[in-house]
Design a protein around this nucleic acid. Sequence first.
DNA 1: GAGTGGTCTAGACCACCCC
DNA 2: GGGTGGTCTAGACCACTCT
Lengths: 244, 244
Amino acid sequence: MTETLPPPSFRPLYEQIKILITQSLVAGEWKPGEAIPSEVELAARFRVSQGTVRKAIDELASEHILVRRQGKGTYVASHSEPSYQYRFLRVMPDSGEKLHPHSVLVDVRKGRASAEIARALAIKAASPVHVILRVLEFRGRPLILDEMVLAASRFPGLTVPKLEEYKGSMYSFYEAVYGLRMIRAEERIRAVAADAGAAAHLRVVPGTPLLCVDRIAFTYGDMPVEWRRGLCVTDGFSYFNELA
Amino acid sequence: MTETLPPPSFRPLYEQIKILITQSLVAGEWKPGEAIPSEVELAARFRVSQGTVRKAIDELASEHILVRRQGKGTYVASHSEPSYQYRFLRVMPDSGEKLHPHSVLVDVRKGRASAEIARALAIKAASPVHVILRVLEFRGRPLILDEMVLAASRFPGLTVPKLEEYKGSMYSFYEAVYGLRMIRAEERIRAVAADAGAAAHLRVVPGTPLLCVDRIAFTYGDMPVEWRRGLCVTDGFSYFNELA
DNA sequence: GAGTGGTCTAGACCACCCC
DNA sequence: GGGTGGTCTAGACCACTCT
């Protein structure tokens, strides 16, 4: 889906400003949740007009990388903020009720990347990885069985106790502990029959149709960080998507 | 998902321009595929600066309602154009190959709206509707069994021969024949087991897990026009979604 | 070359937030 | 009241398309 385009013959100034701002974000000059300098300050710093900075920030805001707050300033988006907590979770109760799931760790172990996962994470096949299994529960009912795979090199010293502290959201964990902010993800969804293991974790009978959601999540610069497979019960719940 | 907000205390000019442009689109002043007047013309017509018209058009373009073409003009987006033909079809071969499905009509009949469908289409329960059944094939292999429900009042004189002409895309049909351009849709996805009927049409064994994709599609002003349920085989195919 | 959208600037003023 | 983002304007110049 992501394509490498031919070198553009022309490079608008505001795109270069976007790149400079992104570089400061990658370098950690401004951390998630913090305010970046005001538009006038940035305009002075980059020696361009405020309008040009505005256009750059507008685009970064539309990509959910920055957040504008009128009268206050412009902030670095963060998965730790309530409104961003479940930004990538598209499964919802059919009732329309808000979903506030509870995460239960099942297993954390070390392993080696399969060919498929190595390709997805842009690492060498058989590289060491962390594999995390967990169940998302809603009102005490198991809803999603997630398997997450992370390159060990990016997540040194990942341990169960550390993970337990952040049971709410994986991405606020990556962000707070490893400085990796996830900005977008690709999902591929299929229908599968529950095998014995999944059925046990999700408390359904084997063979029950489940959604199988494969996800690759990316940080700044389209660097893949996480491969994930979620098996999801859709009795009373569904995956919501808006086509625009 | 769509909420009615409290009356805004303040109404930017460019939003009013957006509304005026949208009204011209609804009224059919500019038809799908045609060019709208240039920015300077619109600025003169609405007595605002070109910059304000630009901002209005920018937003309409980001909503895929208009399409800008540098050096040529701004056009009304149309499902008849190749790049928009399958804009709302998210099912793709895992191979990465481009999907060019072929539509086969199964049945077209009249019926009455169930409570659920009446709610979705914002019509009275038991209102007369058209029900269309069709199969989407890919390389001769049945992939999706679609059931579409339309308010009869919006689609007078809908007949099989008329439909046959447009087997490629339903939405270019709605657009060309009824002047209804679909601009967005909401989908809810679940996993289900194929029943006997679906299994026969999709040539799978009954019980095979399928994606069940319920869709409501909207035209200008968030007016619901079509209710659709698609049953989809996901062997070699998956539903692709980008989370941004 | 004429016409279109696209970029960039500079400045004025407005709405919102907080001290 | 002072700072922030948000709107609106006017004008210059650039890139692209077609004739």
